Amino acid sequence: MPAALAPTSTSRRQFLTLLGISAAAVSCGTATATGGSGRTGSQVTTLKYQGAASSVTLPELAADLGHLGDLTLEWVGNTISGPQDIQSAATGQTHFGSAFNGAVIKLAAGKASIKAVISSYGVDRFSYGGYCVLEDSPIRTARDLIGKKVGMNTLGAHYQALLDIYLSRGGLSKADAGKVEPLVVPPVNTEQTLRQKQIDVGVLTGVLRDKALAAGGIRPLFSDFDLLGAFSAGTYVMTQRFIKENPDTVRTFTTGVAKAIEWSRTTPREEVIARMAEIIKKRGRNEDTSTLRYWRSYGVAETGGRIEDKEFQLWLDWLAERGEIKAGRLKASDLYTNEFNGYGKG
């Protein structure tokens, strides 16, 4: 069955408002991830997290490779939304979450006490978001999108930001760009929803993109790689309180994820895919592993997932230009730390 489409009243001026968490909401959130069981001495060693169906996250890969030392991961469910994932971390429901860096900025602007510790995903020639249309669609340029529906996994995150950049570079005024309608469609339903013409453009990524293109009848309009080239797009974040109280845990986690990033880069692709298939089968969640054959890369740009100012500054400038945040209120260097990433130090 096709996915039910989200309400259409969300305007472009409400970019990222799905992340509108007040400071009170954060401070009063469930604190289960900041204490309790799973401790060695005074530091937490069992990390709660959200995963993704039929795929392997970098922390899951790091754990299976033995790079997390005495840390264990406790899966609490799956998410398809970066903003929701980091909200769960900010409110103490999980210990870490991953999202688009623009969403991290918006959450920090809402006075959530969080900090990015390592890049979690990115864009390269293998790993990118393709904005796809039907083969016979008349849509060829940004201007052709006026009045059209664009399906993506969540609003107020990576793919809405890149859509806005595409429209701007295509010469659309803010008024015309506002006539392009972004809608939420779960990734697993995007291909079907596009083929049934319930949307005009669908964002397809990774294995879902390659599988859809291989089936025919769909062509790419543009991609985030076309627009910006290779870049790290998202990060894993933790609360500053958790980082302060658990520095050894954060160091082990971050360095372990960094090692997993480099292992995935330097290991033959077939071996990486086989390892991922084993991980998925061992966790026993009744998931399909057939799409793993399309996996190419996590897309993280920098060695060991180390974070650079430019990965936040681009979105700081863009959000300020849109009036979503006050210019100069946040500094890129205040949003992240590489202190705990021991990969390649020295």
Rank of each mutant, 00 (worst) to 15 (best):
T249Y: 06
R169C: 03
V207L: 05
G284Y: 03
E191T: 05
I307Y: 00
G35D: 12
S22C: 09
H67F: 12
G130H: 05
G151W: 01
Q198L: 08
A25P: 09
T32L: 14
E308H: 06
D64E: 14
R39P: 03
W318R: 10
P247R: 04
V44F: 07
V201P: 02
L330K: 01
L335A: 00
P7V: 08
V56E: 08
L163R: 01
N286S: 11
G35P: 03
T193A: 09
L134W: 15
G346L: 13
V237I: 11
H158K: 14
S264G: 10
Q313L: 02
G328F: 02
W75F: 15
Y298P: 11
D85H: 15
N78M: 06
L134R: 15
G41F: 02
R329I: 01
N246T: 01
D144L: 02
F222Q: 07
I118K: 13
D334V: 03
Q198N: 15
S81L: 13
V201T: 08
F126Y: 14
P268C: 09
P83R: 10
D334S: 00
V44N: 03
Q50V: 12
T45G: 06
P220K: 06
G69P: 04
L330R: 01
L335K: 02
P182T: 01
F96T: 13
A52C: 10
Q240T: 08
K111P: 08
Q198Y: 10
G344V: 14
L19P: 10
E278Q: 12
A116N: 02
A62I: 12
R143M: 03
T34F: 10
N189F: 08
T91E: 14
D309A: 02
Q43W: 02
V180F: 01
S223M: 03
I261N: 11
L65A: 12
C28S: 12
R12T: 07
T32E: 14
I165Q: 04
I280M: 06
G256I: 06
A112W: 12
T337K: 00
P247S: 02
A112L: 12
P187H: 11
Q50G: 10
S297N: 09
H95E: 14
D288H: 08
A233C: 10
P7C: 05
S27V: 12
K211E: 02
S37L: 04
S232E: 05
M238W: 00
C28H: 15
G41A: 01
G20Q: 15
T94A: 14
L316Q: 01
G92R: 14
G156E: 12
C132G: 04
L172W: 10
F231N: 09
L183S: 05
H158R: 11
Q192H: 14
R283M: 14
A215E: 07
A63T: 13
A258N: 08
K197W: 05
E74D: 15
Q196E: 15
N246E: 06
T337Q: 00
K310W: 05
R143T: 03
T235C: 08
A258Y: 13
I86G: 11
K310V: 06
G92F: 14
L68G: 09
V203C: 00
H67V: 07
A24Y: 12
G38K: 01
R241Q: 15
K259W: 07
K282T: 14
V185I: 07
E270N: 09
I118W: 07
K282V: 09
D64N: 13
A301S: 09
G69Y: 03
N189E: 09
L194D: 04
A31H: 11
Q192F: 11
C132Q: 03
T46D: 13
K48E: 15
